[in-house]
């Protein structure tokens, strides 16, 4: 990476109104995309766009968090904060992908799950928990890309994967810097300090070995970033498709199993 920006600058970049969200990458990476709707239980969540199409001729299922552009669209998409129906739709379509041996690409970019009364009533926690446990067993390759703000459990609900990729100016964190600062220091204005402390940049996560690739953004147009990302995703899909189901699932298990392995002093 050319210039090392302070962490909070990255957070602001990840949240920027002009920054392309998941829907952009579906539009520019996936050919003949057909959007599929609904969780078959309650409704259709506008904050998650999902469907099928081709990545350079390879049939894929693509699932993306999207906040929309116009104010009307943003309201319809709840500003990109997914509801339980969104996670359930995502899981339904991952199982459909599994049935047809189709790889899955997830695009993550959301400030987090929907903090609402209805979302709790309909089991937001249970919906995320179900995705985490079920995604561990999906017999198709899963490639997750953080394109914007990867906010906590809501982001992880599309983040159980074989390969994790982050764009250079995306962030991925257990809590927003504002939330962290207000809980720890009773002052959300200390978000920049919290952002540094949380180590949430793509660079940090690459160093921790939690993401496998970082796509550079410096001096690149959105189109150039998109095509670099597409190459990276395609290579990973080809590599993961070559594995047996056992190798794939063991690899996925071990990818997360090794994070924070502790010694026992007994």
């Amino acid at each position: 990476m050319a210039v090392l920006k302070p962490s909070y600058e990255r957070v602001k970049a990840a949240r920027s109104n002009d920054r392309p969200m998941g829907g952009y990458y579906i539009k520019h990476m996936i050919d003949d995309f057909i959007e599929l709707h609904g969780d078959r239980r309650f409704g259709d969540d506008g904050a998650i766009v999902a469907g099928v199409g081709y990545l350079d001729g390879i049939p894929v299922t693509a699932i993306a968090m999207e906040r929309g552009d116009s104010i009307e669209e943003r309201m319809r998409r709840n500003f990109g904060c997914p509801s339980p129906e969104g996670y359930r739709k995502a899981l339904r379509l991952m199982k459909e992908a599994e049935k047809f041996h189709r790889p899955i690409i997830c695009f993550i970019g959301s400030s987090g799950a929907n903090p609402g009364i209805e979302a709790e009533e309909r089991g937001q926690g249970e919906a995320i928990a179900e995705n985490l446990v079920e995604m561990m067993g999906i017999k198709s390759p899963i490639i997750s890309v953080v394109v914007g703000e990867g906010g906590s459990g809501g982001a992880l609900a599309l983040g159980v994967c074989d390969t994790a990729i982050m764009l250079e100016n995306s962030v991925y964190s257990v809590i927003s810097p504002e939330g962290c600062a207000s809980i720890l220091w009773k002052d959300s204005a200390k978000a920049p300090e919290a952002a540094d402390a949380l180590k949430l940049t793509a660079d940090d996560l690459y160093k921790f070995g939690i993401v496998e690739y970082v796509i550079e953004e410096e001096n690149r147009t959105s189109e150039e970033i998109c095509s670099a990302l597409k190459r990276c995703v395609k290579d990973e899909i080809i590599a993961k498709k070559a594995l047996s189901v056992d190798e794939l699932l063991d690899g996925r298990y071990n990818k997360f199993r090794k994070i924070g392995n502790c010694e026992d002093n007994q």
């Binding site: 159980v160 964190s173 257990v174 996925r252 997360f256 994070i259 924070g260």
Partner: peptide, 13 residues
Amino acid sequence: GIYSLMQMAKVSG
């Protein structure tokens, strides 16, 4: 930080 978030996935596995 991110290590604690990832424990959710690790235990789920």
